[in-house]
Design a protein around this nucleic acid. Structure first.
Length: 789
DNA sequence: GATGGGCAAGTTTTT
DNA sequence: CTTGCCCATC
């Protein structure tokens, strides 16, 4: 993370807050530091406290400074106490940065900001306080995408839906979409529900929600949706929060989806129309690049209508980039129709023109970028100040290969995150089972990891019993091991595992949670499982597990840790040394670099064909905003490239330059001199010969390893999924088979799927002792037995 | 119950 | 060309 107030972060010219100049200025004007450091527009956005306010903050215009100064201002004036301010961001990173920057302005009082966080984290906090009002227990589990898909697979299987034709992934996408729009199953538009599995869309959505409730779990979408429901159905609760939050601030408002909009609108409503709605939204319609995941630009475009009397402040003075870069970006984005319209300007220098270079193919592209980076390095530039921003992640590989070849240090931003790693997810599943024995998804994940001989058929039996009795898997397993429904080997293995869990759970209160965690991983055989691998990769995984345990020490207990992990946990990429960053354009939003390389500006790739096909002009405009985001990341140098040939799906295809290249203003662009290094064709010829055999050890490069481990993780994360290929009936019908208590009296004739016919010898609750005609005397559960007249 | 071969599909990503 | 996922085999 960059130092929040380092020169160039937001300001090239304004005095550093807290610095001597700022203090001197403040003293002279008689106003506090944070006001003295602002330009007139920023100051207006900070000081207009009453009523709705929209700050349209262009790239690099000091948007975070406005938000943090505004909070400092509110607190300094005593208009609210820290816990009476609701400040919402999208990412944890943004929340963390905001907290740090507020702390720099006002000191430790920032700690009291209990309601500064992401939409999801704040929703979770509200939900846990009132869980029972929406049929949850306050220790509910938050499922991530992976769990969500596994659950949906179960639902699809139970409903006998062809999973090849209608995948869980697609259904997850649909449900997410509905949730993003604030729609529960009853309100899904008929046409959209029709589109999935011959009209079963809405029904599957309902079933999925029912499964979530029985698991005492919510997915990310539910955090918002259930909070909405909670607030709508409980006016007293709503009123409490409305009164609590005297000021509401929202970052990146252009990224809000419909559900988040409704959420905000509820909380900002005032009992008396005369009371001002103190809502301050900061955003930039030109940087709305998440439409495809439900963000609705209309929210920001509609602001003045939604909140009558709203004040709109435009922040157009850019403190980041040089004149040519801003001119190029502004000209480009001006081609969009759906925008509120603003133009960035700077008092700074013009600097270098934006460069555009055509190359023969993607190999040459990587080589040219590599050369330029080395040259900048020779001129004294740091690799930390350079980034390559690509449209799609497959473009990264070519750069990685080239940089490895050159020995040029690089880092890929946005790879797999820490908590998405296989070993971390496994370890967390163990801990979830210890903390929340009803967490079926976690149990399924680790029941046979490491291998214990508890395969599909065993799990199948446990599943069936759990469903029939409507109890969690672990509880069902406990009942089953008391009987002879299972074969001796799995039965013994299961009994051992369950014994382990009882022992661990009993120790929750007794020893520190991080020690318990270590013990769990040790005793379950999980660490041994990796130790036996004896590979470099396994060592890395063991390291990660250690890191996980270490990070647990920062939390008071297991519950707090698990909450943090499902919502917040991030990767810390703290490898020493300066490195070039490689990342997607989406991942680059909010960041800035001296030099930015923008490769792959070709039709079909950027703008991406699929965007155009699926969303037409809106799609094109979003792609153009992405281009705008890319160019405005640059402080001093923006370098655009396009290739004439690119390998797509293994085939070389010839490509044409992106229309965005033509959207750039000629006066501010320098087309790269073709004669340089023998022209692109000459360079192409060189590349052919230089590179053909350069990657003999391709499979050992970090890029490959990364790709491979990513693949492995997803594969492995799926293998624990149970395939309840069981009774081809819907739950209700199966349930009717459940035996009412006392149905089996000694002497009754019965039939068992596995053991055949027999007669009841003794009854002990749900456990029956049966003399089977062929199999002899067995202890079985009544749900697996049918009465025979 | 584990393991390997064969087949569709292939942007962007946070919570 | 690659990669994830399903199914058939030992």
């Amino acid at each position: 993370m960059t130092d929040p107030f380092s020169p160039g972060d937001d300001d090239l010219s304004a005095p550093r807050p807290g610095g001597i100049a700022a203090r001197a200025l403040a003293a002279a004007r008689g106003s506090p530091d944070w006001l003295a450091a602002l330009n007139p527009e920023q100051r207006e956005a900070v000081e207009t406290l009453d009523g709705p306010l929209l700050a349209l903050a262009g790239a690099g215009t000091g948007k975070t400074r406005v938000l943090t100064s505004r909070i400092a201002h509110i607190l300094a004036l005593g208009r609210a106490r820290p816990h009476e301010i609701l400040a919402v961001t999208f990412t944890n990173k943004a929340a963390r940065e905001m907290r740090e920057r507020i702390a720099m302005l006002i000191g430790p009082a920032a700690e009291g900001m209990g309601w500064l966080g992401t939409f999801h984290a704040i929703s979770a906090k509200i939900l846990r306080r009132h869980a029972e009002l929406v049929d949850l227990k306050s220790n509910f589990t938050i499922l991530d995408t992976d769990d969500q898909i596994r659950l949906l697979k179960q639902v699809l299987k139970a409903e006998n839906i062809d999973e090849k034709r209608w995948t869980a992934r697609v259904l997850a996408y649909l449900i997410d979409n509905w949730k993003n729009r604030g729609l529960d199953a009853r309100h899904v538009p008929a046409g959209e529900a029709q589109a999935f599995a011959n009209g079963k869309g809405a029904a599957l959505y309902t079933l999925y929600q029912e499964r979530l409730k029985t698991l005492n779990a919510v997915d990310f979408g539910d955090l918002l949706l259930e909070t909405l429901r909670l607030l709508r159905e409980n006016p007293d609760v709503l009123r409490d929060y409305q009164q609590r939050f005297k000021f509401i601030l929202v970052d990146e408002y252009q990224d809000t989806n419909a559900a988040q909009y409704l959420w905000l609108r509820l909380l900002v409503q005032r009992a008396e129309p005369s009371q001002p709605q103190n809502l301050c939204c900061v955003g930039d319609d030109d940087q709305s690049i998440y439409g495809w995941r439900g963000a609705d630009v209309d929210n920001i475009l509609r602001f003045e209508t939604d909140f009558p009397g709203a004040k709109v402040v435009r922040l157009e003075r850019n403190y980041r980039s040089t004149g040519h870069i801003l001119a190029a970006a502004s000209h480009l984005i001006a081609r969009n129709r759906d925008r509120l319209g603003k133009t960035l300007f700077t008092d700074g220098e013009w600097g270098e023109k934006v460069t555009v270079a055509g190359v023969w193919d993607s190999e040459e592209e990587a080589r040219v970028v590599g050369e330029e980076i080395e040259q900048l390095q020779r001129q004294g530039a740091s690799l930390d100040d350079m980034a390559i921003l690509v449209r799609a992640s497959f473009q990264m590989r070519e750069f990685e290969e080239r940089f490895i070849n050159l020995g040029l240090p690089y880092k890929v931003i946005g790879g797999p995150r820490f908590y998405e790693r296989l070993e971390i997810r496994d370890a967390l599943a163990y801990l979830r089972c210890v903390a929340q024995p009803a967490d079926d998804l976690a149990f399924e994940r680790i029941v046979n990891t490491p291998k214990r001989g508890l395969g599909e058929s065993t799990l199948q039996t446990v599943h069936e019993y759990a469903r029939l009795s409507r109890i969690p898997l672990m509880q069902a397993a406990r009942a089953l091991v008391e009987t002879e429904e299972l074969k001796p080997k799995p039965r013994g293995a299961l009994r051992t595992l369950l014994g382990d869990f009882s022992r661990w759970s009993a120790q929750i209160a007794e020893k520190p949670h991080y020690e318990l965690a270590e013990q769990v991983l040790e005793e379950s055989g999980y660490t041994d499982f990796w130790k036996q691998e004896r590979t470099v990769e396994a060592e890395g995984r063991l390291e990660n597990l250690k890191e996980l345990i270490r990070s647990m020490e920062e939390f008071p207990d297991l519950g707090a840790f698990l909450e943090h992990v499902s919502l917040v946990m991030d990767v810390e990429n703290n490898e020493a040394g300066a490195r070039v960053s490689i990342m997607t354009l989406h991942g680059a939003k909010g960041l800035e670099f001296d030099t930015v390389f923008l490769p792959g500006w070709e039709e079909g790739l950027f703008p991406h064909q699929r965007s155009l096909d699926e969303n037409g002009r809106a799609g094109l405009e979003e792609e153009r905003r992405l281009a705008y985001v890319g160019v405005t990341r640059a402080r001093r140098r923006a370098k655009i490239l396009f290739a004439s040939n690119r390998r797509i799906h293994g085939l070389w295809q010839s490509t044409v330059p992106s229309r965005f290249v033509d959207d750039l203003p000629v006066d501010h662009v320098q087309v790269r001199d073709e004669a340089r290094s023998g022209g692109s064709y000459g360079a192409y010829a060189q590349s052919r010969f230089a590179n053909i055999d350069a990657f003999g050890s391709t499979y050992e490069t970090p890029g490959w390893k990364r790709a491979r481990s990513r693949a492995e993780q997803t594969r492995a994360s799926e293998k624990g999924a149970p395939s309840s290929r069981g009774p081809k009936t819907i739950e209700g019908e199966v349930l009717s088979r459940a035996a009412p208590a006392g149905k089996f009296a000694p002497g009754a004739r019965i039939f068992h799927q596995k053991f055949g016919s027999g007669s009841v010898a003794a009854v002990d609750g749900s456990k029956l002792t049966i003399d089977f005609d062929k199999a002899g005397r067995k202890l079985v559960l009544d749900t697996f037995v049918e009465l025979r007249g």
